[in-house]
Amino acid sequence: MNENVSRKNIDITWAKYKYVVMERSYKKYKDISKNIGLNMYTYDMFTAEIDSICKLEPVKSQSINTLQHIWGYFKKNASKEDKNVFLMYLEKYVNDEIELYKVKNVLKEYAIKYKSSYLLNSYYFDY
Rank of each mutant, 00 (worst) to 15 (best):
Y110H: 04
A111R: 03
Y127I: 01
Y114R: 01
E3H: 11
T42M: 07
M45V: 09
N2G: 08
M1L: 15
T42H: 06
Y17T: 03
M1E: 11
Y110K: 04
S6P: 08
D31R: 06
V59E: 03
L67V: 10
E99S: 08
V103L: 06
I10L: 07
K75A: 05
S52M: 14
V106A: 02
I70T: 02
E23C: 03
A78I: 14
T42S: 14
Y110F: 15
C54F: 12
F46W: 01
Y17A: 06
K8E: 10
E91W: 07
E99D: 15
D96G: 04
F46D: 00
V20M: 00
V94L: 10
N4V: 13
A48F: 15
I50Q: 00
H69P: 00
F125L: 07
D51E: 12
Q68I: 06
L107N: 00
E109Y: 08
M45H: 09
P58F: 09
I112M: 14
S63I: 02
D11R: 07
A48H: 12
L107Y: 01
N77P: 03
Y101C: 08
N77S: 12
A48S: 15
K92H: 05
A15G: 07
D31P: 03
S79Q: 12
V103G: 02
E109M: 09
P58M: 10
L107E: 00
F46I: 06
Q62P: 04
N77V: 05
E81L: 13
L87I: 00
H69Y: 07
F125A: 06
K16H: 05
D31T: 11
S52Q: 10
I70W: 00
I53N: 01
A15T: 13
N105M: 13
K27E: 13
E91Q: 13
L67Y: 00
K18T: 04
S117H: 09
V5N: 10
I53L: 11
K34R: 10
S33D: 09
Y127H: 15
W14Q: 08
I32H: 01
G37Q: 11
L87W: 14
S6D: 11
N35G: 10
L119P: 01
N4P: 08
L100M: 04
S25N: 11
K55C: 08
E81N: 12
S122D: 06
R7P: 02
Y124M: 03
A78Q: 11
Y118F: 07
D82A: 05
N105P: 12
E23D: 06
A48T: 15
N95G: 09
Q68W: 11
I36A: 03
L119M: 10
K108S: 00
D11M: 15
S79M: 06
L100F: 06
D51G: 06
D96L: 08
E99A: 09
L120T: 09
N84V: 09
N77Y: 09
Y110L: 13
E3P: 04
D126K: 05
K34L: 15
T47C: 11
T13A: 10
S63P: 02
V21D: 01
Y26P: 01
T13H: 02
Y17D: 02
K16D: 01
M22Q: 07
K104W: 00
Y124G: 05
K113T: 08
I50R: 02
D31H: 07
Y118N: 14
V59F: 03
K27S: 12
S79P: 08
E81T: 13
A48K: 15
I12N: 02
I12M: 08
Y26C: 02
A15P: 04
E97K: 14
S61D: 12
F125C: 04
K30H: 11
S61V: 11
K83I: 08
N121E: 15
